[in-house]
Measured scan of single mutants.
Amino acid sequence: HITLTNLITEETTHVVMKTDAEFVCERTLKYFLGIAGGKWVVSYFWVTQSIKERKMLNEHDFEVRGDVVNGRNHQGPKRARESQDRKIFRGLEICCYGPFTNMPTDQLEWMVQLCGASVVKELSSFTLGTGVHPIVVVQPDAWTEDNGFHAIGQMCEAPVVTREWVLDSVALYQCQELDTYLIPQIPHSHY
């Protein structure tokens, strides 16, 4: 019994991606959610070859190996599938703050939850000092008015990073160091 759908849910078992011959794909929301959820992320060749051979072929032979941004053979989907007991964002409290493009905020929040993070909706909701690490995620190029994202640091004691930190961490299924993704914050004294 196979159901085809464009939506990823808890029940989804396989995410089928358009890939090149070496099982490398573009980074899409579907790709990120498939990895975050520990699903099989496979090339569409799995479907076409299975139909051709009239049997369901082994997914291992068709698993996506990499993507056009993070590298052609990083094995993120395999790492995620085999590490669902070791979520990459466990112990983190993440607030997805401000506008985002090409990806609804609720989907970004679901993605970080699938990776083990707790989501907070407001900067004031962080449970500071409880052994949980707060992180604010923003997408600077989605902000149309002044660079308000440079002043988020005044509203909460949390590192502010770009959305790329989430996307790179999920694609590779390895929590990336914050340093290269940090957004400089204007210190309090400048006000």
Rank of each mutant, 00 (worst) to 15 (best):
V42I: 13
Y191R: 09
Y97Q: 10
C25S: 13
R86T: 10
N102Y: 05
E145A: 09
P187R: 06
I88P: 04
D20K: 01
W110M: 13
Y173Q: 08
V69L: 09
I2V: 07
G38P: 01
F149W: 15
G148V: 06
I152M: 07
C96P: 00
M111L: 12
G129D: 10
G153A: 08
F23Y: 07
M56S: 05
V119R: 13
N73F: 07
G37N: 04
L182V: 10
G116Y: 03
E93H: 07
T5G: 03
R65D: 05
S125L: 06
E11S: 09
H133K: 15
Q49S: 10
N6L: 14
V69I: 05
L57T: 15
L167K: 00
I35L: 11
H188N: 06
G116V: 00
I8R: 01
S43G: 06
W40G: 01
E11L: 07
Q174G: 14
F62Q: 02
Q154L: 08
P104Q: 14
T127M: 11
E22V: 08
D67L: 00
H74D: 06
G91S: 10
Y191G: 09
I152K: 14
T105A: 14
K78N: 04
Y191S: 07
P134R: 13
H188P: 09
A80H: 04
I186M: 08
K55N: 09
I2F: 09
Q84C: 05
V137A: 06
R90Q: 04
V68R: 04
T130N: 13
V24M: 05
A117G: 09
N147R: 07
H188Q: 11
Q113M: 13
R72L: 10
E157L: 14
G37I: 06
F100W: 06
K39T: 07
V138Q: 05
K18D: 04
H74A: 02
V41Q: 01
E10G: 09
P187L: 10
Q75A: 05
D20R: 02
N70I: 03
I152N: 07
C96A: 01
E164G: 13
Q174K: 14
L57I: 02
T5F: 06
D85G: 14
E109G: 06
N70S: 14
F62M: 04
V47T: 10
E157G: 05
V68P: 09
